[in-house]
Amino acid sequence: MEQGYRRSAGSARGEARRQALLESVTEDLAEHGLVDFSLRRAARAAGTTHKVLLYHFDGVDDLLVQAVDRLRARRIDNSMAAAALRAGEGTLAARIEALWPVLIDPRSGHRVLEQSTGLAMYDPARYAKFGREATSQYLPPLLALCPPDWSERRRTEVAELILATLRGLLLNRVIGADPASVEAGFAALLRALEREEASP
């Protein structure tokens, strides 16, 4: 962190300002992605200066991590709301099918979230948190979608399978894979879930 700047001290007014700045930066990130992300670009998006951002955040990495976390939380909330609409159908496959359109909606910031996974692979010393944070944010809701009568181990295994498969399919979409092949892969995941639910 640059000398002479500090994070806001935690007053209600300071926290409200910090949240407003973070929301503006998050919206810019969702629209423009991670390429060329910098403190100065974030400041322009928030209508302020980089010095003000350094007062409220511990630097560009702290700001980036918090904005990505916010995008991911928003995506998860929207996905789970879509899945909840299918809860009456009773199947895990139906709930996963319902959340897919939310995951691939451009408004979800999906490109940024997949780019952040790439950063975690490219520079794990600096960006490993993107991988860890994604897993810790996605797994609990996926576990909650699994049938409650399953054992904890079975729910964990299936939730891990869903997460890994969805990550792979979403990354394939970002790198330009044939959309039909991505949809075929997703359909195969749904069939696998149907078989899993049908087994004792």
Rank of each mutant, 00 (worst) to 15 (best):
V68P: 02
A43D: 04
D178K: 15
D178M: 14
G90P: 03
R107F: 07
S38A: 11
L85E: 11
P106W: 06
A128C: 07
E23P: 01
R18M: 05
L143Q: 11
G185F: 08
V68D: 07
D77S: 12
T26S: 10
N78L: 11
F37S: 04
A16P: 07
P101H: 03
P147C: 02
S8E: 05
S151R: 11
L92T: 08
K51F: 00
A125T: 13
Y127N: 12
E152S: 15
E23T: 11
A134R: 14
A42K: 07
R7S: 05
A125M: 15
R111K: 07
R75D: 00
A120L: 02
R7T: 07
L163K: 05
T165S: 01
R95V: 09
K129L: 12
R155P: 15
E97V: 15
V68C: 10
L64D: 05
A42Q: 02
L189W: 00
L145A: 09
S8I: 05
L39D: 01
T91E: 01
Y122D: 09
R195W: 11
L103S: 00
W100A: 15
V112P: 05
S79N: 02
G109C: 07
D123A: 10
R41P: 03
N78Y: 04
S151V: 10
L53I: 05
K129V: 09
E133T: 12
E194N: 11
E114M: 15
G90L: 01
R7P: 03
A84G: 00
A84C: 04
L161K: 10
F57R: 04
L85I: 09
L189E: 12
C146L: 04
A43F: 08
R86Y: 02
A83H: 14
M121L: 05
L189S: 07
P106G: 08
L54I: 02
R18E: 08
A73T: 10
R6K: 00
G168A: 00
F186E: 09
R86I: 07
L64W: 07
R153W: 07
R18T: 09
T48I: 03
D62R: 04
E196L: 13
L113R: 08
L170H: 07
E160Q: 12
G168S: 02
A144Y: 12
A84W: 15
D61R: 15
D69V: 06
R40I: 01
R111L: 10
S108T: 05
R70W: 06
I96D: 06
D36F: 06
E197Y: 04
H110L: 08
P101W: 02
V68R: 09
L29Y: 03
K51G: 05
L163R: 15
A134Y: 09
V65F: 10
A180W: 12
P200Q: 15
K129R: 14
L22G: 01
A83L: 14
I175N: 00
R132I: 05
L103E: 03
T117K: 03
A20L: 00
G90N: 01
K129I: 12
R95S: 08
Q19E: 08
G185P: 04
L161I: 11
L54D: 04
R191M: 06
A120C: 06
T117L: 04
M121P: 10
A84E: 09
E27V: 03
A164P: 08
N78A: 06
A84L: 12
V102S: 01
R153C: 11
R17Q: 13
L39P: 11
P200K: 15
L190W: 01
H50M: 07
M80L: 09
E160R: 09
